[in-house]
C-alpha cells in the first residue's frame, strides 16, 4: 500500500516538475496521469505496484470533489445571470455528442 502511494505521489511530483520546467498549459496531475498510463503500457512499471493506492483513491474520489461543488455557492449571482446559456449550450452540445459518437461507433463496428 505505502509503496504504491509513494509511486502515485512520485508521478504527481514528476508531472508538476515537467509542467513547471517546460511551462506546458496542462495541469501537472494530468501530465502525471498520462505518464503513469504510458509507463504501464510500456511495461516500465507493473500494475500490481501501483494498484492498491490507485484503487483506494478512486474509491473515495467523489468525496474529494464535493468541496468544489459547494464552492458554487460563491457564484450564485454568476449562475443566476447566465443560466440560459449554461443550460442550453450544455444540453444541446451533450445531445450532439451523444448522437455523433453513437452513430460513428454503430457505422464503424459493422464493417
Amino acid at each position: 500500500m505505502y509503496k504504491s502511494l509513494v509511486y502515485i505521489f512520485s508521478f504527481l511530483a514528476l508531472g508538476e516538475i515537467i509542467k513547471y520546467v517546460f511551462n506546458i498549459p496542462i495541469a501537472g496531475n494530468i501530465i502525471a496521469m498520462i505518464l503513469i498510463f504510458t509507463c504501464l503500457k510500456l511495461k516500465i512499471i507493473k500494475l500490481s505496484t501501483v494498484k492498491p493506492a490507485a484503487d483506494a483513491l478512486i474509491k473515495y474520489m467523489v468525496l474529494f470533489f464535493i468541496p468544489y461543488g459547494v464552492g458554487m455557492m460563491v457564484y450564485f449571482d454568476v449562475l443566476k445571470e447566465n443560466w440560459i446559456p449554461i443550460i442550453f449550450a450544455s444540453l444541446i452540445s451533450t445531445i450532439i455528442t451523444l448522437y455523433l459518437t453513437a452513430i460513428i461507433q454503430q457505422k464503424l463496428e459493422k464493417k
Partner: peptide
C-alpha cells in the same frame, strides 16, 4: 483530487 487523477491513469490502463 490531485493524486486521484494520477490514479485514474492506472484505471484507464
Amino acid at each position: 483530487l490531485s493524486p486521484t487523477i494520477v490514479a485514474l491513469g492506472v484505471l484507464f490502463y
